[in-house]
Design a protein around this nucleic acid. Sequence first.
DNA 1: TGTAATTCTTAACATAGGTCAAGTAGATTA
DNA 2: TAATCTACTTGACCTATGTTAAGAATTACA
Lengths: 217, 217
Amino acid sequence: MVFISSNFSFLFCQIGKFCIFDHMEQNRPNHKLIYYFSKWTDISEEAEKIILSAFEPQFIKKKKDLLVVNDVCNYLYFITDGCMRSYYVDEKGGEHIFQIRMDNNWISDLESFFSNRPSHYYIEALENTHYLRISKERLEQLYIEVPSLERYFRILFQKAYVNSLKRLNATMWEPASDRYNEMLKEHPEMFQRVPLVYIASYLGITPESLSRIRKKK
Amino acid sequence: MVFISSNFSFLFCQIGKFCIFDHMEQNRPNHKLIYYFSKWTDISEEAEKIILSAFEPQFIKKKKDLLVVNDVCNYLYFITDGCMRSYYVDEKGGEHIFQIRMDNNWISDLESFFSNRPSHYYIEALENTHYLRISKERLEQLYIEVPSLERYFRILFQKAYVNSLKRLNATMWEPASDRYNEMLKEHPEMFQRVPLVYIASYLGITPESLSRIRKKK
DNA sequence: TGTAATTCTTAACATAGGTCAAGTAGATTA
DNA sequence: TAATCTACTTGACCTATGTTAAGAATTACA
């Protein structure tokens, strides 16, 4: 695959991630958020204060659910430190993971969030995780108070959509071994923090298949 | 599949399509566009004029290319009447269709459009097609002249992203026959206008497999 | 520290869907 | 009207991946 194999980074759709924040103070996590906003749009000092007050810092323990099926997803979540997965459960009880997100990434069920309808998904913490959250009402208000945020989210969703289409093409037309190899290359840190069972599901295969792929290398 | 089978409409990701325009005058296609904008955001009469002047009405004949690989995609296209497909070609020469769009839908290569980098894709007319187009420069300017457009596109991409993730889940975890049946239910018009070869590719299978699925029914 | 739970691997077998090759039926063109 | 094309189908065979079941290695916990 000529162009697909050149960059499989979309395999994680890790929207909004651009640099490491080791130099930042650990206890001012909101500043990471502002940094990302300011990458794509202008944020005045005034606006910065408003934004920081709109997001609530939260914590969740490993293996706890942030969202369960049939609940409305009331928040947009920005992971400052930790790891989450979102998945659905089919009628035979099988779990299908479609998102794994780590530090400095957004996670939510956008469909439920924007429609106020019950979610079909679960969101679960894979590690003890610190995150920021904002409710739909507060976000709508924020779009009015800080109009340039609309631009940030327009660009965020635009990129997320493009990445998702690439991942779709790879899933349809690339063999699982290629998807695995490129993921290994683009996201080695993932393999240190996330069990292979989950990575297999994310890639659209069974853990047994992933095991075979890894053996062949 | 409990929730997926309840609505496969995302299989077409026909973002922005909400109603039929039979009642509209055929020769004022731009008004369809305004109608869609005004569904999600407020458009003043003033803004309407600016928008209408920013989009150029165009026409392309069946089988002609709107975009070819390695060209930069300079426009966002809104199909007012007709049908297009976008696809890429793998190193063995195989074509893989990932979008089929008909009346009142957007089509483009967003990645190339926003990055100004050469596209990996083709966009081809499957019918004689009337469409509107806007360049990146003009759109950036329009975001400034009509800020509420940023909101429209934020919502458009947000929905497109959600649909794309659902299509990804269906592709990974649902059998091809289910995807076919639901597409037939949700988009029967597609089968009147688009050859099965293309629909097969869109569903991620070969024409032979689609033929077998259709036979079994 | 021992037991249970997770995580990962392996092997035998099953199956959906791909590949190749041929053939039919309409539509298009000479 | 014959000759091509294009769209679609069919059949034989193949392969990647799923399924089931078992076991090893690691981690958590009582």
